[in-house]
């Protein structure tokens, strides 16, 4: 397939990257560190663990896995839309 509009591909790629990094930042830094005490106090516990504590020790790691899966899926779809594929 013809390879076209690398610029459009690049800006769409940047959007995906920044979007996922925003989630990454909110979960780990905002949820696990900056607003932890607020979350501990105001959100329901996960099992018997305070919400912020659980995010910092378990939830954030689970989110990282999901973020990377989302990255792979979204980027592969984007490449396909723009006609980038390895020739067999």
């Amino acid at each position: 397939m013809e390879i076209d509009h690398p610029r459009a591909h690049r800006s769409a790629c940047l959007k995906i990257t920044l979007g996922l990094l925003a989630i990454w930042f909110v979960v780990s830094f905002v949820g696990g560190i900056l607003l932890r005490d607020l979350l501990d106090a105001n959100l329901p516990s996960i099992g018997s663990a305070p919400f912020g504590f659980w995010i910092a020790q378990q939830g954030s790691i689970i989110c990282f896995v999901l973020i990377l899966i989302a990255y792979a899926v979204l980027m592969n779809r984007l490449d396909k839309q723009h006609g980038y594929r390895e020739d067999k």
């Binding site: 996922l20 990094l21 990454w24 780990s28 504590f53 910092a56 790691i61 990282f64 973020i67």
Partner: peptide, 19 residues
């Protein structure tokens, strides 16, 4: 709780690395 910095730091780095 303080040790969370290692738990998050050494896994979250892979998000940066990958994207």
């Amino acid at each position: 709780y303080d040790a969370s910095r290692f738990l998050m730091g050494w896994t979250g780095g892979f998000v940066l690395l990958t994207v």
